[in-house]
C-alpha cells in the first residue's frame, strides 16, 4: 500500500505573513481575530482579484505556497474543506436580496457565496481539470478533505493531491454567534489552559497541504491514519486506544499529543479526559496561535507537521510540562461543540 506524505504547507492566519511556530513573538488571540492578509498582487491579476472573496484569496495564496514548497505543479485532485465557505459574500448577497426587494441581484457576490468557489478558483488559476471537491461538514470539513485525499493516494492511481481548509469571519454571522454565546465577547477572559468563560475566540484563516505518495527532501511527515466521526460509540479512552492499536501504537508510544483546546469552558471537559489518558505525554495546543474556527484543525496539522520535521518542540506550544524524548509519532485530537471529533496520526519519515 502507498503512503501519504505532507510535502508542502501554506498558511494565512491571524499571525503575521510568514509566521513560524519557531518565531519568538505571537499575536495574542482576542475575542475576534481577523487574518493578516498578505500581498496578493504578485499572485493574482488585479482584474481577477477584485472579484475574489477573502477566503478565495487566502486559499489561493496558501495553496500556491504549499505547491511551491512541494515543487508540485500537477495536483491530480484539489480538495477543500470549509465550515461556512465565503460567508462574507454570502452575507452581501443575502443583504442585497433584502435591501433591493429581491431585485437587482448581481452575479459576483452570488458566485463567491457558493462553498465550492474556493476549490474551483484554485483550479481555474492552475488550469487544473482534475477531481475538484469541497467538503462542508462543520468542524470536520478539513478532516473529510484530508480523508478523501488519504484514501485516493493510498488506494487509487493518484500521486499528488492539494488539500486545504478555509474559513472567514463575517459581521452578521459573528453577531449571530455572539447572540447564542458561541463566541467570546469583548472583555471575556480567554484562557486556554483553565477556561472560565463560554464560547470560542473566533478567527479565520486558510491552511493548505501538498500531499504525495512520494517522499522528498522537503517531506514534513507521513499521515499514517485518521478517524473522523460525530459521536463516540464507545468511551473516549477505548476509542483512542483502539485507534492506536490498529496502527501498532499505544498511549505510551505517542511522543506528542496536539489538542484542539479552544478556551471554551463548555468544551474543555472533553479535552480534560484526553489529558488524563495522556498524563505522561507532552501535550501541545495551537488555537492560542490560530484562534478558533471550523477548519482551525488544519492549522493544528501544520503545527504538528512542523514539530515532527524540525524535531523540536517550541515552548509556546506546551500545554503541560512534559518534554518529548523523541518526536516520532504525533496524535492530533480535535472536536467542536462535543461533536465533529477527529484523530489524525502523523509519523516521522
Amino acid at each position: 500500500m502507498k503512503n501519504c506524505y505532507i510535502n508542502g504547507i501554506g498558511s494565512v492566519s491571524i499571525q503575521a505573513t510568514g509566521f513560524s511556530i519557531f518565531d519568538a513573538e505571537i499575536t495574542t488571540v482576542q475575542n475576534v481575530n481577523k487574518a493578516q492578509q498578505p500581498s496578493y498582487k504578485e499572485l493574482i491579476a488585479p482584474a481577477m482579484s477584485r472579484r475574489m472573496a477573502k477566503g478565495v484569496k487566502m486559499s489561493i495564496y496558501a495553496a500556491n505556497k504549499a505547491l511551491f514548497e512541494a515543487k508540485m505543479v500537477d495536483p491530480q485532485a484539489i480538495i477543500v474543506g470549509t465550515g461556512l465557505g465565503c460567508i462574507e459574500d454570502s452575507e452581501k448577497f443575502l443583504d442585497a436580496i433584502i435591501e433591493n426587494e429581491e431585485q437587482f441581484l448581481t452575479p459576483t457576490a452570488f458566485i463567491q457565496s457558493t462553498h465550492n468557489t474556493v476549490a474551483a478558483q484554485i483550479a481555474l488559476l492552475l488550469q487544473c481539470k482534475a477531481y475538484n471537491f469541497t467538503y462542508v461538514n462543520g468542524a470536520n470539513s478539513f478532516e473529510n478533505a484530508l480523508f478523501d485525499a488519504f484514501m485516493q493516494l493510498k488506494h487509487l492511481d493518484k500521486e499528488n493531491i492539494l488539500i486545504g481548509g478555509v474559513d472567514e469571519i463575517a459581521p452578521y454571522t459573528f453577531s449571530m454567534f455572539e447572540m447564542v454565546g458561541k463566541v467570546k465577547r469583548v472583555g471575556d477572559n480567554i484562557n486556554f489552559k483553565k477556561p472560565e468563560t463560554n464560547g470560542i475566540p473566533l478567527a479565520e484563516g486558510a491552511n493548505f497541504f501538498a500531499l504525495s505518495v512520494k517522499k522528498t527532501a522537503n517531506t514534513y511527515a507521513e499521515v499514517v491514519d485518521l478517524l473522523v466521526f460525530n459521536d463516540f460509540k464507545d468511551d473516549e479512552t477505548s476509542t483512542i486506544k483502539a485507534f492506536l492499536e490498529k496502527n501498532n501504537l499505544s498511549v505510551n508510544t505517542i511522543d506528542v499529543i496536539v489538542l484542539g483546546v479552544n478556551a471554551d469552558a463548555v468544551q474543555q471537559p472533553f479535552y480534560h479526559k484526553i489529558q488524563v489518558l495522556f498524563t505522561e505525554t507532552p501535550q501541545a495546543y495551537y488555537q492560542h496561535i490560530s484562534g478558533s474556527y471550523d477548519t482551525a484543525s488544519a492549522f493544528g496539522l501544520k503545527v504538528a507537521a512542523e514539530i515532527i520535521r524540525s524535531q523540536s518542540y517550541p515552548e509556546k506550544l506546551k500545554y503541560n510540562e512534559a518534554q518529548p524524548e523523541k518526536i516520532e509519532n504525533i496524535l492530533l485530537v480535535n472536536q467542536n461543540n462535543l461533536t465533529d471529533f477527529s484523530f489524525v496520526l502523523l509519523s516521522k519519515c
Binding site: 482584474a47 472579484r51 433591493n100 431585485q103 437587482f104 441581484l105 448581481t106 452575479p107 459576483t108 458566485i111
Partner: peptide, 17 residues
C-alpha cells in the same frame, strides 16, 4: 478598462437600480 461579460451584467443592474 478591460471589463468583461460579468461586468456588463453589473452595469445593466446599475442602470436599473
Amino acid at each position: 478598462l478591460g471589463l468583461d461579460s460579468i461586468d456588463a451584467l453589473e452595469l445593466i443592474v446599475l442602470l436599473d437600480k
